[in-house]
């Protein structure tokens, strides 16, 4: 079990991490702290809370969720690498945030600084309208946008976010121009859509799950239809190459021993594989994803290229 890479780490590691590495066999033997770099109540918090109870059941230790909000997550990520490297401190990470933020400005970390060990779900992009909206299908919206260039208002959460990038990419694909109205968080952007302050929302499938009959999804950015919305087409079906949304995962400080990273990755993979957990997540409108520590590099590289292209085309990176 002591492979070459691990042996190498051992040589350079301090006494502290040797102790930590040896105890990896019994990992975890105390509570694991799970830092969410946002305030409570958002999608990151809710999905972490879903994991919390399964973690305790499976591994007998508490997963303690704490919050370190600020700078749209940047405050937490900038501090991640100065935290304890024993695997008992993990932090939630979000895409596209950790790609776009460092690309835009100096935020105290780079994308490569973040050592993600598992990406466990994403909230697929979706166009959401109220149940009584005149837009019955995606084509209705596109037709209106073509007739009134810049006149179709669409709410979304923040700028340079998953919603905003989706809007930019879709406008380009469909050859339309819509007006993007940024709100503070998905809740506020849903409220604006429900109150008809805007004509449609760039939201997620989770909005559809939370609002039920009050809203209609026009399309979702998934490979296949979401089981919760069997009648809603994917963008792909309608001829638009759009798959994605906001991805969420967990990371550890850079210098955490390989062995422990592997163990954490396996543990969260096990939670992700649990049928009850999958059902809870799907019912909430989330889409599950299984990118473990081994597959992370390829996954991140693909996402990074995709996001940077959309962001630089939109002029967000100067």
């Amino acid at each position: 079990m002591f492979n070459l890479k691990f042996a190498k780490t051992l040589v350079v590691a301090s006494a502290v991490s040797i102790a930590a590495a040896t105890s990896a066999l019994a990992f975890p033997d105390k509570a694991v702290e799970y830092i969410i770099p946002f305030g409570p109540g958002g999608e990151s918090d809710i999905s972490a809370r879903f994991q919390q109870s399964f973690f305790k059941d499976k591994f007998g230790q508490d997963l303690v969720v704490s919050y370190k909000p600020g700078g749209g997550g940047a405050v937490g990520w900038a501090q991640l690498n100065s935290m304890a490297t024993d695997g008992y401190t993990i932090m939630g990470t979000n895409l596209p945030h950790i790609v776009i933020q460092p690309a835009q400005k100096d935020v105290g970390y780079t994308t490569e600084d973040i050592r993600n060990f598992y990406m466990f779900h994403y909230t697929p992009d979706a166009i959401v309208v109220t149940a009584d909206s005149p837009y019955q299908t995606l084509d209705d919206l596109i037709a209106d946008a073509k007739a009134n260039p810049g006149g179709v208002t669409m709410s979304g959460s923040g700028k340079a976010t998953a919603n905003h990038l989706a809007q930019i990419r879709f406008d380009k694909m469909a050859g339309i121009k819509t007006a993007y109205v940024p709100f503070k968080g998905t809740g506020a952007s849903s409220t604006a859509m429900l109150g008809k302050q805007v004509k449609a929302q760039w939201g997620y499938t989770t909005v559809g799950a939370a609002q039920g009959d009050a809203v209609r999804l026009l399309a979702v950015a998934m490979e296949e239809r979401h089981p919760l919305f069997p009648d809603v087409p994917t963008f792909k079906e309608l001829g638009y190459e759009m798959v994605g949304g906001a991805y969420r995962g967990m990371a550890v400080p850079k210098d955490t021993p390989e062995e422990i990273v592997k163990r954490l990755s396996d543990m969260f993979g096990e939670i992700n594989a649990d049928e009850a957990f999958r059902k809870q997540m799907l019912d909430g409108g989330f889409a599950l994803l299984d990118v473990d520590a081994a597959g992370m590099e390829a996954f991140m590289a693909a996402r990074k290229a995709e996001y940077l292209e959309a962001a630089s085309e939109a002029g967000l990176l100067n």
Binding site: G158, K159, P182, F183
Partner: peptide, 9 residues
């Protein structure tokens, strides 16, 4: 800090 709804610092 980071603006809430536009992404400037």
């Amino acid at each position: 800090g980071v603006a809430e709804i536009s992404a400037d610092i």
